[in-house]
Amino acid sequence: MPSVLLLNGPNLNLLGSREPEIYGSETLEDLNTLCHKRAKALGLSLVCQQSNWEGQLIDWIHEARDVHEGIIINPGALTHTSIGLLDALKGVDLPVIEVHISNIHRRENFRHKSYVSQAALGVICGLGRQGYLLAMDAMANVLNSEQDL
């Protein structure tokens, strides 16, 4: 069963209470439960991790090389600042899908730039938690295509 690592970055642990008008009222635990259900339906194994620390996210990305077949990541604010995350994602040579709950292109100008996008096969933003489910679907398609080659 292919394994996918779902990483959530800074402040996503505050889902459900942080700016619910932007991020909704569901918690990170609710989101993880939803993603686990989708993963099971797609025949994927899923590991969900969240950290407010850039270095921890980078360490998990490095470790993913030997454990997982793909990475779905919502880097939070690190999207716009972290060349370290970009380099780590490029360095592990795994398929990456970037996801954001809000539409980063309709927000402040500084949120329009994503370093992580340069390592991602695709980006899903602005669709709320549905974006995570679409990312799971897309990753399953990518992994199934690679396995068929």
Rank of each mutant, 00 (worst) to 15 (best):
Gly126Asn: 04
Leu42Met: 07
Ala119Gly: 02
Leu121His: 14
Cys35Val: 12
Lys37Thr: 11
Ala119Asn: 03
Ile97Trp: 12
Arg38Pro: 01
Val142Gln: 09
His80Glu: 01
Gln118Glu: 14
Leu121Phe: 14
Asn52Thr: 08
Ile58Thr: 11
Pro2Tyr: 14
Ile61Val: 13
Val99Thr: 07
Leu14His: 08
Ala39Asp: 07
Ile61Leu: 05
Arg129Gln: 15
Thr79Arg: 04
Gly55Leu: 13
Pro10Asn: 13
Val123Gln: 08
Pro10Ser: 10
Ser25His: 13
Glu108Ser: 06
Leu34Cys: 10
Leu133Gln: 10
Leu7Tyr: 05
Leu14Asn: 10
Gly24Tyr: 03
Tyr132Trp: 08
Ala64Lys: 00
Val47Gly: 04
Ser3Ala: 12
His36Tyr: 13
Gly91Met: 01
Asp148Pro: 00
Met1Glu: 09
Thr27Val: 01
Gly9His: 10
Met1Pro: 06
Cys48Ala: 10
Leu5Glu: 02
Met1His: 07
Leu78Glu: 06
Val142Asn: 07
Met136Leu: 15
Asn8Asp: 07
Tyr115Trp: 15
Gly16Glu: 00
Asn11Gly: 00
Leu31Ile: 12
Arg107His: 04
Ile97Val: 15
Gly24Met: 08
Ile83Asn: 06
Arg106Glu: 13
Ser3His: 13
Leu149Gly: 14
Gly70Ile: 11
Ala135Phe: 05
Arg129Lys: 15
Ala135Met: 06
Asp87Trp: 03
Ser102Arg: 02
Val96Tyr: 10
Asn103Gln: 11
Gly122Asn: 05
Asp66His: 14
Ile61Pro: 05
Gly9Tyr: 09
Arg65Asn: 07
Asn141Arg: 15
Pro10Gly: 09
Leu5Ala: 05
Gln50Asp: 00
Ser3Phe: 00
Glu146Phe: 12
Glu19Phe: 03
Val47Tyr: 08
Arg111Ala: 04
Asn8Trp: 03
Glu63Val: 07
His112Asp: 05
Trp53Leu: 15
Pro95Ile: 12
Cys125Ser: 14
Leu34Lys: 14
Pro75Ser: 15
Asp30Met: 01
Gly16Arg: 00
Asn13Gln: 04
His105Lys: 07
Tyr132Glu: 11
Gly91Ile: 03
Gln56Arg: 12
Met136Val: 06
Leu89Glu: 00
Leu6Thr: 06
Val47Ile: 13
His68Val: 03
Leu85Pro: 04
Asn74Pro: 02
Leu85Phe: 03
Asp137Arg: 04
Ser102Lys: 02
Ala140Ile: 12
Ser17Trp: 00
Gly91His: 01
Leu6Ser: 10
Tyr115Gln: 11
Ser51Asn: 06
Trp53Met: 14
Glu54Arg: 11
Ile58Val: 15
Leu89Ile: 00
Gly24Leu: 05
Glu63Gln: 13
Gly131Asn: 01
